[in-house]
Design a protein around this nucleic acid. Structure first.
Lengths: 222, 222
DNA sequence: GGCCGGCCTGAAGATGTGCTGAAGAACCCG
DNA sequence: CGGGTTCTTCAGCACATCTTCAGGCCGGCC
């Protein structure tokens, strides 16, 4: 679910900024200032995605794009200072998967990276709280590597709490979100929280805490 | 590379222009002015690519995007008059593959369409899940080398599940994608899953698992 | 300490969900 | 127009899960 990304960009501030942003988004990153040894890096690092600056000292981005296509099936996003329809067309026709014009907002670059990874099936949405991981798409819950079997209601409950971990969630809120109830049936929530805890705490300390008088919080042990 | 493209755009000049340009580029095109009957068209026409205007009368492009993702494997490009990073981010995060801002040069749109198709074409046409191989192009299914005979419905069902292996797929989703149904007929799905399992499990352990209360997943035995 | 309200939990009946065999309908092929 | 295949509907069963209820626990407050 965490992707490997290779960034080739000669401008140091951009290279670093992009690298940090990608790392923060949970990906593994390697950066290079030019195309030297690019083939070796491709073969060794096996990136899922390559970000290529078009204007580089030595071999330019288009050349590296061709190399990438020939020797791997990584996705490719081109970065360039040039704008204009002609340039964009050239970039896309050469076989890039996407094309981002400098200056760009980092958030957008990250969004495009993730859109591409998602399309390639290399990205997965996982909510994490401490050693607990909830994979929403796969409907899987694991704690410390071990899978935990939950019923549909327990799963909905956990997913909702995990989606706002660290925040206190009231029973009324849970009844609405998980059950679609509009009336107050506190015990219903309590029963299911109890069942959920039993399963979660078979693999570690308490994560789902009671906040007397307010509701529940999902929070890693401090 | 001829593809089936579905265009949903309410402005007549754009709709027609895009349609003609795509046809000239060698693709098959269908156009609609709004989202009515969109699900049915998706199921019947089975486009490779969908172009969605964001601002539509009735259901907007984001809504149709979600529907597309849930019930098909088509690529999605959003068209919009709005610009601004916020809109682009929203579009990409919602899961669009690309995002084109109006007014656009037709040539660029076509280039983006082809870039996306190329990207999708690089994806394996043989889907593998454990020892099961589904060759989408040849319509062949084999498990551990041995060919398995499936009926048309069973095959569509399996192909859809294989295309999103590891992800939980709801019965409603399956009904829409495989049958083009819009109403809930759970047992229909169950009967065919049952038949499919009988054939699949004649050659190995269970791959098609039930997720009670949610749907089914195709997942190799862990 | 004693009381109160909020919370936890085991048990049990009610409900829901999924599986399967069988039968009729629809379809396809010659 | 048959004959075979495939699809859909129906009904019954098995069992997992939900909800309710009741009793007990715990923390805070007087």
């Amino acid at each position: 679910m965490a992707a490997r990304v290779l960034v080739v960009e000669d401008a140091e501030p951009i290279r670093t900024g992009v690298g940090i942003a990608l790392a923060e988004a949970g990906h593994t990153v390697r950066t290079r200032a030019d195309g030297d040894g690019f083939e070796r890096e491709l073969a060794e690092y096996r990136p899922d995605l390559v970000l290529l600056d078009v204007m580089l000292p030595g071999r330019d981005g288009f050349e590296l794009l061709t190399v990438t296509r020939e020797t791997s099936n990584a996705g490719v996003i081109l970065l360039t200072a040039r704008d204009g329809v002609e340039d964009r067309l050239h970039g896309l026709r050469t076989g890039a998967d996407d094309y981002v014009v400098k200056p760009f907002v980092l958030a957008e670059l990250i969004a495009r990276v993730e859109a591409l990874l998602r399309r390639m099936g290399r990205l997965r949405t996982v909510l994490e709280v401490g050693d607990l991981a909830v994979d929403v798409e796969a409907g899987l819950v694991r704690r410390g590597g071990e899978a935990i079997e939950l019923t549909a209601t327990e799963y909905k409950l956990l997913a909702f709490l995990a989606g706002r971990s660290g925040k206190v969630v009231g029973k009324t809120q849970l009844l609405t979100a998980v059950w679609g109830y509009d009336d107050y049936a506190a015990n219903l929530v309590e029963v299911h929280v109890s069942a959920l805890r039993r399963k979660l705490e078979a693999h570690g300390p308490r994560l789902l805490h009671t906040v007397r008088g307010s509701g529940y919080v999902l929070r890693p042990p401090s």
